[in-house]
Nucleic acid binder design. Sequence first.
DNA 1: AACTCCAATTGATCCGATGAATATGGTACG
DNA 2: CGTACCATATTCATCGGATCAATTGGAGTT
Lengths: 236, 236
Amino acid sequence: MGVIENAIDTIKQMIIDGEFRPGQKLPVEKGLAEQLGIARSTLREAVRALIAMRVLQTRQGDGTYVTSLSPALLLDGMSFVADIHLHAGTGEFLHVRRILEAEATALAAARIPDDDLVVLGKLLDEAEGLAAQSEIDHGQLVALDQDFHSLITSHCGNAVLAAVIQNMSGRTVRARIWRGMTDPEAVQRTLAEHRAVYRALLARDADRARIHAAMHVLGVEESLTGSRSFGDADRE
Amino acid sequence: MGVIENAIDTIKQMIIDGEFRPGQKLPVEKGLAEQLGIARSTLREAVRALIAMRVLQTRQGDGTYVTSLSPALLLDGMSFVADIHLHAGTGEFLHVRRILEAEATALAAARIPDDDLVVLGKLLDEAEGLAAQSEIDHGQLVALDQDFHSLITSHCGNAVLAAVIQNMSGRTVRARIWRGMTDPEAVQRTLAEHRAVYRALLARDADRARIHAAMHVLGVEESLTGSRSFGDADRE
DNA sequence: AACTCCAATTGATCCGATGAATATGGTACG
DNA sequence: CGTACCATATTCATCGGATCAATTGGAGTT
């Protein structure tokens, strides 16, 4: 095994063993490099790999720190995977999201506080107001859509589940979905589905919430795979 | 934004744009560094980050290549996330796995070829033979368990779904589950659940397969969260 | 006590050199 | 002509040091 891979594993293990704890500051580069018996540039490459995994974080002039290591943080590299597979695998990612989001929405039905139900209602109102305009601001709709879904899933009681869903459709995918909705009717249908989910949550009805959430994502899936209007059909 | 982050994004974008395709060889380090206007060591740190994401791969003496970029490859960094959260978040990961594996098993009921059903049966026979010994080889059981589950989920018809499940319970988690089964009765129960899933698949009964798969993972969840026999209860 | 400013600390970036692994092309042999 | 072997060039791996830039913390001032 290479020196760098070795250093990466050593640092990882030190974290797993609790020698370095979340939020803790690591020794200075020179010191840590000597401790591991490697050159400073080599250590930097190892550190850089761990930064990419969101395990470490550096602040120039200050030091290198272990991140919070929260699932949400560590799993957010997944959105890049979703983005890079825009061409072929979008449907597969959405399928996973459908399975998880249906379940998370059902779980949230029993847990979401009344306050946040009010917020959801306001998000819906805002989105519907936006969609009624002659010039639809798709960027704003994407943001509202993201807020709506993540507010719900954040109350499913499982941080890992919420994080996976969040990253399952990356920002690029989500933006593309809404951008593809040139048909005003599709926008209306999507908003109606959102409201159906909202009503099920209001009624604290987990089963209805699950079904409406699944239906909603399924509608998105079909609008993407059904109508090949995205210019990617040329590749196998 | 830092020079390195810039380089990482540039290379990513070149891949997304198709300038660098899967399997393709990148320019030599010195050349690419000059092209991006950065020093070679800086480029190496960027490349190292992309290697950690499984986007690039280097072969000393040969060159740097773009990987296949398959979802299975890109998502396999997730298992590290699962491993690092052994202490607190195991239950949450298993919950996600339960949701996904139930669905994947149901999907596989209609798709798994007869040949692989035969293989599944053999895996079960082997595991049961192993469990009947006086000295149980837990390592071997873990391997068979992994083969059993991944053979099923690989036939769910969705590579992303299969990859996420595969990584949802990392090797460390899985090993720990089996190691925790000091009670021979628990081993027998687990094997019985495996066989129930197998029978449902044989009958091509998606609903039964889904329920038995969910039941199986749930049993594992409860054996972990119910009996705090893993020495991690000292941390909050 | 609060503020300003400077110096030490620390990561960011660059550079050049050497080592190690691989591929390639040529050469000798069958 | 084809194959096996070998020398060499190519390329990544690792190293050590130099300089730049950002942050911090304390000295000095008000």
